[in-house]
Nucleic acid binder design. Structure first.
Length: 481
DNA sequence: TGGGTGGAAGCACTTAGGCG
DNA sequence: CGCCTAAGTGCTTCCACCCA
């Protein structure tokens, strides 16, 4: 947002150089007559006949227009046209396309376009626009828009972006503004915005898709009085074979991922020290999928029921129903489907680890000078969101450890549970280290782990160890946020 | 507590036809 | 041409309940 600005005298001429600003040009044209001024296309500056009065006037004009500005966060609700700041539209738009504009005094952070785009001849812009604007009392905002001005802070910026991205209609503007208002009140109470430290997260991002139960569904058009009134969905198999896919994916999402990974807001990150165990669990899961597919294929094609399931079927623990399959076969035949195709299951299990780190060196190496700043800004936002999510996730894991430690105090803990607890403590500590995230209580937790070790080696918790543990528990709970 | 049962909502993504 | 919409497919994430 910074460009050259000056008013100076050379060769008995006043030279006025400013960034382009439509409103400013209008003002200059109004104040100085055509014969008094000219525009130097090469040097991109205004040349005005020198008089002391003109000089003072020009200086005052530039001063008022370009200085004493403050950074503001402004949110707009647009109905029909894009808002303009000093005569320059924030968003340019045609019916079929739109793009943000930049100027010396604003940066469009994000926008969403909603509803009618108008026609090619008369395009319209309905939507929400969020911009960072350098404002002073002369700044002119026009356009058919409600807008609200906030002081610019990182946290407001982030919240606003998030809310706008979630917005579904223009009416959400009210809710967003309410939320931002509440935040501003809080910030004002604080007086200072708390700066979060920069984070460097190093780990592996998990990219996954798993086969879902929908693969075992078939949909047919549902007709009533010659009108299609929807679809009916039938399950090719039911019971065990149908549910097992859900059970397996649940295992991945709710157990394996939670056990090894940390939620970063947009995906799970596996810290380096957990990759080995994570992959081991994944291999096991893949095996289960392979076995499942084999059994499913045998069941559908040959009617074979897996032997290790017989007992469970007998006792009513699981449900495998060949009669149902026959029924489905008959139904499918009525709909012209002769053969039931068994979908590929195991090959749809896609779990990938992508090396992941947020590294600004990359930005500097690959981007042009003028884009670096804005990318850095975006990255900063991502980093902070990610940091906040990772921290929260680790906090939650910590809280659960704390709850379990309380049981230890009550001596209700078996050795197995204790080993698990120690592992979990170790996990949180090492993960925090790997991801370079500082969370409170880690130091105290390290000591707890040592104490547990000490107690375990003695088989029975010694009174001494217990005393230390109690003190440490106190320390942890008092520093709980 | 973990696996199984049965269901459902919500999301991303794709495809095809309509539209100006 | 590129957006819009409806419809369809597949994946993710819930939930309530049941049983050993």
């Amino acid at each position: 947002m910074s460009e050259e600005i000056f008013v100076r005298v050379e060769d008995n001429k006043i030279l006025v150089k400013t960034p382009y600003d439509k409103l400013f040009v209008k003002k200059i044209k109004k104040i100085f007559t055509d014969s008094e001024r000219s525009y130097d296309e090469d040097r991109k500056l205004w040349i005005i006949n020198y008089t002391q009065e003109n000089y003072e006037l020009a200086q005052k004009l530039v001063q008022e227009h370009f200085f004493n500005t403050e950074e503001k966060l402004v949110i707009f609700r647009c109905t029909g046209v894009s808002p303009k700041v000093n005569g320059i539209p924030l968003v340019e738009y045609a019916r079929d396309s739109d793009w943000r504009r930049r100027a010396w005094n604003f940066d469009v952070i994000t926008y969403v376009r909603m509803g009618s785009h108008g026609t090619r001849r008369h395009p319209q812009f309905h939507g929400l626009v969020l911009a960072k604007i350098l404002m002073n009392e002369r700044t002119e905002i026009k356009g058919e828009a409600d807008y609200k001005v906030y002081p610019y802070t990182k946290s407001l910026h982030m919240t606003a972006v998030e809310l706008i991205e979630k917005a579904e209609s223009l009416d959400d503007y009210e809710k967003i503004v309410e939320k931002l208002d509440r935040m501003v009140q809080k910030l004002e109470g604080f007086g200072v915005e708390v700066a979060k430290e920069a984070v460097m997260v190093k780990g592996f991002l998990v990219i996954s898709t798993l086969p879902s139960r929908a693969l075992l569904d078939r949909a047919f058009p549902k007709i009533y009085k010659d009108t299609r009134i929807g679809s009916e969905v039938i399950q090719i198999v039911r019971g065990y074979f149908y549910n097992k896919l859900g059970v397996l994916s649940k295992k991945f999402y709710n157990h394996i991922l939670q056990k090894h990974g940390v939620w970063a807001g947009f995906g799970y990150i596996i810290p380096a020290h957990r990759v080995y165990q994570f992959i081991r669990d994944i291999e096991e899961l893949r095996e289960e999928y392979v076995k499942f597919e084999r059994e499913l294929r045998e069941f559908i094609e040959e009617g074979k029921i897996p032997e290790d399931k017989l007992e469970k079927i007998e006792s009513g623990r699981i449900n495998i129903d060949p009669e149902y399959l026959d029924l489905v076969r008959e139904y499918l035949r009525e709909h012209g489907v002769e053969e039931i195709e068994v979908p590929n299951i195991a090959e749809r299990v896609k779990i990938r680890l992508i090396p992941f780190s947020v590294d600004l060196r990359f930005v500097e190496e690959y981007l042009e000078e003028r884009t670096i700043k804005s990318v850095q800004k975006e990255l900063e936002i991502v980093k902070q969101e990610m940091f906040e999510n990772l921290r929260q996730d680790l906090e939650e894991k910590l809280n659960s450890i704390y709850e379990r430690l309380k049981n230890y105090e009550k001596k209700k803990m078996t050795k197995n549970v204790m080993r698990k607890l120690k592992e979990d403590i170790d996990y949180v500590i090492r993960t925090a280290e790997d991801l370079e995230i500082n969370i409170g209580r880690v130091e105290a937790l390290k000591k707890v782990a040592e104490t547990l070790e000490f107690a375990e080696s003695d088989r029975v918790a010694t009174p001494e160890a217990e005393g230390r543990l109690k003190a440490l528990l106190g320390e942890i709970s008092s520093s709980k946020s």
